[in-house]
Design a protein around this nucleic acid. Structure first.
Lengths: 347, 347
DNA sequence: AACACTTCGGAAAGCGCTCTCCAAAGCTTC
DNA sequence: GAAGCTTTGGAGAGCGCTTTCCGAAGTGTT
């Protein structure tokens, strides 16, 4: 049946005519506002059923200034058009875990998620403009690189927003974050406790705050254990970069017997490079990852890693945003999660 | 600065007043419609700049019946509330790859993606109602289980929609799919060609069409090679289920030397079970996966698998939908992708 | 100079809904 | 039974935008 969308859908007006009441009354009944005479009430619902009326959310939103939508903004201020990076980002378990966590909360609240990409300057201003107009009731921001102007723009515009991951520059914005430094410290403690002496690290991009925290957290903890100097090679969170970094580290520190890797996906790459070099994990080298993503369990040996409760954090971010939308005056708050060590076979 | 969203945003009216023209003229200029006197044109743009005007998409959509949004509907007709399954689904690389593919097209078209979950009967009718009202211009449907009533509802309602994966029941709906059966045949050919004799399969849930096609495709191809009977154990596409299925198969067919697994994630589980049983891959047992997801490359040994060009398929689905939105009379079409064999180390 | 065309900008009618007024009606209370 | 209250439903004014319809210029033709 190729009807297209030609025939006009029933409106409030139609229902009112059928029920023999005014538009206002129908609106009140449908929204359950104020006491309406039970008889009329039933009459109206009956008419709603007979006409097959469904409220038009757009029209409603226009007047109520509420859309029942929140935006998930993936902000990548360094993106170029056709940057293959975005594709990689979506395929990474990180993205899916965030979406899953958000939806677990939003779904029950009957709120939908609109995916937005803010790459260029232009997209950013349009996005903020749309949000100010109430295109969405608020925004969850996933900020990839450092120096992202978006968080500031959002707060200046008075748009309710919550970041997942702390903003690179101090901005009065709600956020949910992980104590990345203490997670890294956990890894350091574990490597030292299991008797490793020559310990190195594969870090993520230094301009990403989360990544940077892991590096400094690890260095500080190692210093407390008397290791004043830790060789570090940086990757960009991809498997290939982890492999490359591991090769570099092996070349420069043949005696290494412990590695901390800033995320599991890079750890997978490191595992490959170690095997290639004939080093057994965990017999010759202990390896600790970060995130406890699906990559960690599927690796062989399964990765000892730092558990990052990303789903919970995303869910918390959603709750925070909802609260913020309800009460715009709410004071800016941050929720920091403590990571835990998950011991598997690699260390 | 805790401004909230109190101060009224500039409207078309405001711009018109500043520019000294009518609302209609401003609208025409902003939308680049019809020739407007170059002088007025400049005057208007100037006023737009001075007032900081941004069009209100909601108001515009209400009259144009175009939203610049397409819905990504994850349809799970068997979902229960708080079903943990959804979380698993989002974390699976499948979801992210689809989103990435869709966004690669939608992004350049300036269209946003709204994530919707259709689990219960109730959600489904509300969703269709909203879509008929033009809440979104069209829908991409990811239908998880068989017997999903949603595709039919969508076509009956005249909502432009494209499915990723063929509908379980014949429905006149556009879709993009993979030739799952010939992919499975590729795996069969490869296992036989590499000299394997005792070949088994780990299948997915039989009620999922894609999964079912892989099973029958594999069986048929094996039959052509003279293997009339192939032992099959079914999992549910998770790693644990793959591990369990592998254990069952090993117990029942100790002599097995070749395994085809209906997706890479389960293959990871199978790998674990095989190692546990002391079987070396690929020396003792050849293993072929399906999807060529990130799991395949990160496994050790890396998985020989059937490449599923999911991103391309999603991108094609997006293009198809856009075309369909442009021309609602477009005839229903299907695009079937041919999978290819990717040879790595596991077989 | 009169006519037919074309081009261009403004007035105004909606899109479908919510919600503030206001009037009517029902109820108490003295 | 009149004054004062509390329900209850309707009229109608928007929300911010697009777009049709027209009249006023401007252009060209005979």
């Amino acid at each position: 049946m190729q009807t297209g969308r030609v025939e006009r859908l029933p409106t409030l007006e139609d229902v009112a005519r059928v029920a023999g009441v005014s538009r206002a009354t129908v609106s009140r009944v449908v929204n359950g506002i104020r006491n309406v005479d039970p008889q009329l009430h039933e009459l109206v619902w009956d008419a709603v059923g007979r006409t097959g009326y469904v409220p038009n959310r757009l029209a409603r939103s226009l007047v109520t200034r509420r859309t029942g939508t929140v935006a998930l903004v993936v902000s990548d201020s360094e993106a170029h058009d056709d940057d293959p990076f975005m594709g990689r980002f979506f395929a990474d378990p990180y993205f899916g875990r965030v979406v899953g966590g958000l939806m677990s909360v939003l779904r029950t609240a009957g709120i939908q998620l609109a995916l937005q990409i803010a790459g260029t300057e232009d997209q950013r201003t349009r996005l903020v403009g749309d949000l100010r107009h109430g295109q969405a009731d608020g925004a969850i921001v996933l900020s990839l690189p450092g120096r992202d102007p978006l968080p500031r723009m959002l707060t200046d515009a008075g748009v309710p927003a919550v970041m997942i991951g702390r903003p690179a520059d101090p901005v009065p914005i709600n956020y949910v974050d992980l104590a990345n430094d203490s997670g890294a410290a956990l890894a350091a403690d574990h490597l030292v406790a299991t008797g490793r002496h020559t310990i190195v690290m594969i870090a993520g991009p230094p301009e990403v705050p989360a990544s940077n925290d892991r590096t400094t957290g690890f260095r500080n903890a190692m210093a407390r254990h008397g290791h004043g100097w830790v060789p570090v090679a940086a990757g960009n969170f991809t498997q290939e970069s982890g492999e490359a970094a591991m090769r570099t580290l092996l070349a420069e520190n043949p005696a290494l017997d412990g590695v901390f890797v800033a995320n599991d996906v890079m750890a997978l790459g490191a595992l490959l490079a170690l095997r290639e070099a004939g080093r057994d994990v965990p017999a010759d080298v202990s390896l600790v990852g970060f995130d406890d993503s699906s990559a960690a369990t599927s690796a062989s040996p399964p990765l000892t890693t730092i558990r990052h409760p990303l789903e919970d954090m995303a869910a918390e971010a959603a709750k925070l945003l909802l609260a913020r939308i309800e009460d715009p005056g709410m004071r800016v708050s941050a929720v920091i999660y403590e990571p835990t060590l998950v011991t598997r076979r690699s260390a």
